[in-house]
């Protein structure tokens, strides 16, 4: 049976691969393809955030009573990531390669230390306190 950790970690890796693809296309100067893959990356990343914020975090908070703990930090970091994604998109639109890479560099470190916290701490806690199959089904509906 799939755990919450496995399900959401897989989504993290998918988003990472999409972002790496954007970098690769930009390095080759393929701006239009880069924009297309970036749009996919943005959609998948925001959908992942939504699954957590609309389903996983509220269920975790309701079950454990921890409202101002890890989930609050994760929401704050999602906001920081959303802002950087918007700035990356703008840099792509304006074909500012250096700016894109500068923002992307900060984004990747932010999101990877965020993923570390989720994969090592929060998701295992969710697996302990929630029903993984029910959660995965609910998140899959988004």
């Amino acid at each position: 049976m799939l755990t919450i950790t496995e399900y959401l970690t897989h989504e993290h890796r998918e988003c990472d691969e999409l972002y790496a693809k954007v970098e690769e296309l930009l390095k080759k100067g393929q701006w239009e393809d880069a924009k297309r893959v970036f749009a996919e990356f943005k959609t998948e990343t925001l959908k992942h955030f939504q699954r957590e914020e609309d389903v996983l975090f509220p269920e975790f908070e309701a079950r454990t009573g921890i409202v101002m703990g890890p989930t609050q930090v994760m929401r704050m970091e999602h906001d920081q990531a959303r802002e950087l994604i918007e700035r990356m998109e703008k840099a792509l639109e304006e074909k500012k390669e250096k700016e894109f890479f500068a923002i992307g560099d900060t984004y990747m470190i932010l999101i990877q230390q965020h993923n570390l916290k989720e994969e090592n701490i929060l998701y295992p806690m969710c697996d302990q306190h929630l029903d993984p199959s029910e959660m995965i089904q609910k998140m899959g509906n988004i």
Partner: peptide, 10 residues
Amino acid sequence: MRGLSIHQAP
């Protein structure tokens, strides 16, 4: 249970 909090971040 307290995993992370911005107030507890070093």
